[in-house]
């Protein structure tokens, strides 16, 4: 217990709150990597998931269903630390690209799978009605399927966001900043309070993200569709 108290004391020191190695700066770095990776993930995976989910007939539908669902399981097996270090060694190190590669690779599948599954679950009757009203395919996707699929889409985004924030910690291992800095430096210097402080910060950030998405779900999901997914 003493060790945890030491870590709490570490938070109280004034040097922890300013400068390059201060918590505010490390938080900004951590959020910056995470946001970049998250934005890239959403840009790639969300439109793709919605589109693939929208296609329900023909060979494309059969192939995409298989590829999308197996990508989710395959992504879980990927060792991020290895991928990150490999990216650092193979590309010229120092910039952001090496950390973004594993973060995005890791986060794309949950967004893709959930967007895909969400759209696939939209009742055919609803789609028929939308088409009968004269909606074009883009309108059907954006005004019907996306709102109905939103609970699952948000679940995918949340899983991706939490994974990105957790994994961004590893960036410090290859010389970048973020909260992982405290863990890596603390380990190297045998300063346990610094390590624990960093670990607590990462954990708090992950839980905050979780709460943000819970709140978001309450605000943006239409009450009509919420009931249907109340159990999930």
């Amino acid at each position: 217990m003493n060790a945890i108290l030491n870590a709490l004391e570490w938070f109280g020191r004034s040097e922890q709150w300013s400068g390059v190695d201060g918590i505010p700066n490390r938080l900004l770095e951590h959020l910056w990597y995470s946001l970049l990776a998250f934005a890239l993930t959403v840009l790639i995976a969300l439109p793709l998931g919605l589109l693939l989910g929208h296609v329900r007939q023909g060979r494309l539908a059969a192939v995409s269903g298989f590829v999308v669902t197996s990508s989710a399981n395959a992504a879980r097996a990927l060792p991020t630390l290895g991928l990150l270090i490999l990216a650092v060694i193979l590309t010229s190190a120092g910039d952001l690209v090496p950390i973004l590669i594993p973060l995005v690779v890791l986060a794309v599948p949950p967004v893709l799978v959930n967007a895909y599954a969400g759209v696939q679950q939209v009742e055919p009757g609803l789609r028929d009605a939308a088409e009968g009203m004269g909606m074009t395919a883009p309108q059907v996707i954006l005004r019907l399927e996306l709102p109905v699929a939103l609970p699952l889409v948000l679940l995918g985004l949340r899983t991706a966001a939490i994974q990105i924030v957790s994994t961004a910690t590893l960036a410090a291992y290859v010389g970048l900043g973020g909260f992982g800095r405290y863990i890596v430096d603390g380990y190297a210097r045998q300063e346990y309070d610094r390590m624990a402080g960093g670990a607590i910060l990462v954990a708090v950030l992950a839980v905050v993200i979780q709460l943000v998405f819970t709140a978001l779900r309450r605000f943006v999901v239409s009450p009509g569709t919420r009931l249907q997914y109340a159990g999930s």
Binding site: I4, S166, T169, G180, A196, A199, A203, A206, I209
Partner: peptide, 19 residues
């Protein structure tokens, strides 16, 4: 369990080292 699920493994490893 859903909070546990969100906690990064590396954070738990580090905190547990003390114990």
């Amino acid at each position: 369990t859903s909070v546990l699920y969100a906690l990064p493994a590396i954070a738990l490893f580090v905190v547990l080292v003390a114990f």
